[in-house]
């Protein structure tokens, strides 16, 4: 038995959850547990109260409104690829999820859990950045919305107060471009990515109308390549254009760690940007 002692709570409604969060000090929320449970087992995390979200049915499931796809925070990673509204509009979700851990961890792991854990190399926050996701947070006085760009406040730290909880993720339908692709490099299948790239393109014939590019693994949070996106608009969707974008992407600031140098991460970013753009263009043409 590795975790330090804690009191387990299993609310069945969001209101009950809010009550617990208001009363209990040093509480942690347990979503799928695929990151928090290791942290508890290793005693990196030692909460006094563990509040299990798995019994709150309202937090799971995908809904489509006129403007957006709304993904409940407790939606399991395994359930997204088969979700028509989510993977239909955003097939990049399914492609990115194939890289998230293994099928056994995706059976428990959740979308909201990944977005709150904010591992720098995580795929779902990268896709959320590329798709202009809005995170809906429930607090003691109701809901507030946070743009993905403002969601990470520091290394592995979401914009979330101790008495708040992420309840759903909204992906605006306007952010779903015609061709979408996710490319990453990891040493072994299912390992944490060294670098991952989310790319989306909409084309007018062979001309790029709009582009979206986000990179995981280079810094503490996913990075949108806004300048490259702007430069791509109006260009021909061809190899020369993607090579130029790749060259620009190599200029990204990238961290070094004990295993991988920043230089290698920059190089990898260039390679993956080119691959993901080419794939996205191919898919945009197929969709046309």
């Amino acid at each position: 038995m590795k975790p330090a002692p804690f009191a387990y709570h299993d609310p069945s409604t969001v209101d009950e959850l809010m009550g617990l969060l208001a009363e209990r000090e040093n509480a942690r929320l347990l979503a799928g547990g695929q990151s928090l449970m290791p942290m508890l087992n290793m005693r990196y995390a030692m909460p006094d109260h563990l509040i299990d979200l798995n019994g709150i049915g309202d937090l799971a499931g995908v809904a489509e409104t006129g403007e957006a796809v709304e993904i409940g925070a407790m939606t399991r990673q395994r359930d997204l690829p088969g979700s028509r509204p989510a993977a239909g509009r955003f097939p990049i979700l399914a492609e990115a999820l194939a890289h998230v851990g293994h099928f056994q961890t995706r059976n428990r792991g959740t979308v909201g859990g990944s977005l709150c854990h904010l591992d720098p190399s995580a795929e779902l926050p990268c896709v959320a950045a590329a798709t202009d996701a809005v995170l809906v947070v429930r607090g003691q006085d109701g809901e507030r919305e946070v743009a993905m760009a403002d969601w990470p406040t520091a290394y592995m730290t979401p914009n979330l107060a101790a008495d708040e909880a992420l309840v759903r993720i909204r992906l605006p339908r306007s952010a779903a471009l015609d061709g979408q692709a996710f490319a990453e490099f990891a040493r072994r299948h299912g390992d944490f990515a060294i670098v991952g790239v989310a790319a989306m393109l909409s084309l007018d014939g062979d001309t790029i109308r709009r582009a979206s590019l986000a990179v995981a693994g280079v810094g503490p949070q996913p990075v949108r390549l806004a300048e490259i996106e702007a430069a791509l608009a109006g260009e021909q969707a061809n190899e020369a254009t993607f090579k130029a974008a790749s060259g620009e992407a190599r200029g990204i600031e990238a961290m070094s760690d004990a295993y991988v140098s920043g230089k290698y991460r920059r190089r990898l970013t260039g390679v993956l940007v080119e691959r993901a753009l080419a794939k996205a263009a191919e898919r945009a043409r197929e969709a046309a």
């Binding site: 387990y8 547990g33 449970m37 290791p38 395994r78 851990g101 961890t105 059976n107 428990r108």
Partner: peptide, 21 residues
């Protein structure tokens, strides 16, 4: 959650038994 040796099925789904209470 890395080695997979503890995998069991819960309601038919394969999961890590070390990552579930």
């Amino acid at each position: 959650g890395v080695c997979g040796a503890c995998t069991v099925m819960v309601d038919g789904q394969a999961v890590r038994s070390c990552l579930m209470l």
